[in-house]
């Protein structure tokens, strides 16, 4: 079975800043893959490379066996057109730290937007699914509310529903609970746990070690643009091998 995501020596620089310095990893289908590490370690950048919000500078990155952002013909790489990139992004849902809901649309409209506009679904069909998705994240009573009328935790759950509306095969979570009040984190993690149980492939950049330990199938500790340590979350979190991992975990646990 091909890996859902496969990275081979992925580098990323912004001008002189070298953020990713050769990332190799594999995310299997149906896996919950957690990325942890100090801020500035490149976790979010790597996540954004997966749906080509950032362009990889060197190395190869594959999603479901296909190269991200390029087409390979012989030994030459061709940049994909914007429309081709957009086509691939349909299959990858992304949840942001700052939610990024569309503030001029209600929760319902946020969830319906992509199916209607991107896939050309009828509004009736999109509405049906939006209702069931909002129900799934426990917000069926907030369908008519605008994002500014929702709490952070509710906004993030709408954002998850919005990403799910495109029926993605892979979900990317970029610190989904970092901007939330502690008391609201649980609701969002519950939704994510439910997704994991349904077999969704998820890559989660997180500081929630409890979630990683309980739900994660694999975990990678990144620091300074490289993978320092990887393995099963229980092993890495309880019995870290590297000093860097140990000192990081001693601060966050």
């Amino acid at each position: 079975m091909t890996a859902m995501v496969k990275a081979e020596g992925v580098h990323k620089s912004f001008g002189a800043a070298h953020i990713l310095k050769g990332i190799d990893l594999e995310v299997a289908k149906g896996e919950v893959f957690c990325l942890i590490g100090p801020s500035g370690s490149g976790k979010s950048t790597f996540l954004r490379c997966i749906n080509h919000l950032e362009q990889v500078s060197a190395g190869r990155l594959y999603v479901d066996g296909e190269l991200v952002g390029y087409r390979q013909k012989g030994d030459k790489l061709y940049e994909l057109k914007d429309s081709e990139v957009a086509l691939k992004r349909r299959d990858i849902g992304m949840v942001f730290q700052r939610f990024n809901l569309f503030p001029h649309m209600t929760a319902m409209e946020n969830v319906m937007e992509a199916p209607v506009q991107v896939r050309g679904e009828s509004r009736a069909v999109a509405r049906e699914r939006a209702i069931s998705l909002l129900d799934r994240v426990g917000l069926s009573d907030k369908a008519k509310n605008y994002p500014s009328q929702l709490s952070g935790g509710q906004q993030q759950r709408v954002a998850i529903a919005r990403a799910l509306a495109m029926e993605p095969k892979l979900m990317l979570f970029d610190e989904p609970t970092s901007a939330l009040d502690p008391e609201l984190v649980g609701d969002v993690l519950d939704v994510m746990r439910g997704l994991a149980e349904d077999g969704m492939t998820m890559i989660v950049v997180t500081h929630e070690m409890g979630f990683a330990r309980e739900v994660g199938d694999a975990l990678v500790f990144m620091d300074d643009g490289v993978v320092v340590e990887s393995g099963h979350p229980r092993d890495v979190l309880t019995n870290p091998q590297h000093d860097r991992t140990k000192s990081f975990l001693s601060k966050v646990l």
């Binding site: 749906n51 919000l53 914007d82 429309s83 957009a86 086509l87 691939k88 992004r89 349909r90 990858i92 849902g93 992304m94 942001f96 990024n100 809901l101 569309f102 937007e113 992509a114 506009q117 991107v118 954002a159 919005r162 990403a163 495109m166």
Partner: peptide, 9 residues
């Protein structure tokens, strides 16, 4: 970013 991540042109 959010709308591009959803595959919007």
């Amino acid at each position: 970013e959010a709308s591009q991540a959803l595959g919007m042109s």
